[in-house]
Amino acid sequence: MINYALALGFIAVSLALLMNLWRLATGPTVMDRVLAVDTMVINTIALIILYGIRESTAVYFESALLMAMFGFISTVAYCRFVLRGDVIE
């Protein structure tokens, strides 16, 4: 039963990533694209976790943890650039 649920999970996350890509391509403003990149990072974390469950090993959680810790910094850097023109003052 878990295999069916995992397949459904993979389909859902892949569709979500495709939708983010669509928003990245056709966002009218810059912040739409920044939001799409940030959501892609979180969806990639979900994909890594699903893969770790499927392979039944716990080695992939460290990469998911690293992406969760540092993935939001890219969004913060983009937004600070838009707000102030400089990332680190």
Partner: peptide
């Protein structure tokens, strides 16, 4: 229980990105 949690998580991720478009 595991399958239920995975399906629930998948549903919310899909709805989140669907709301974005």
């Amino acid at each position: 229980l595991i399958a239920f949690h995975i399906i629930l998580g998948a549903f919310f991720i899909f709805v989140g990105s669907f709301g974005m478009i």
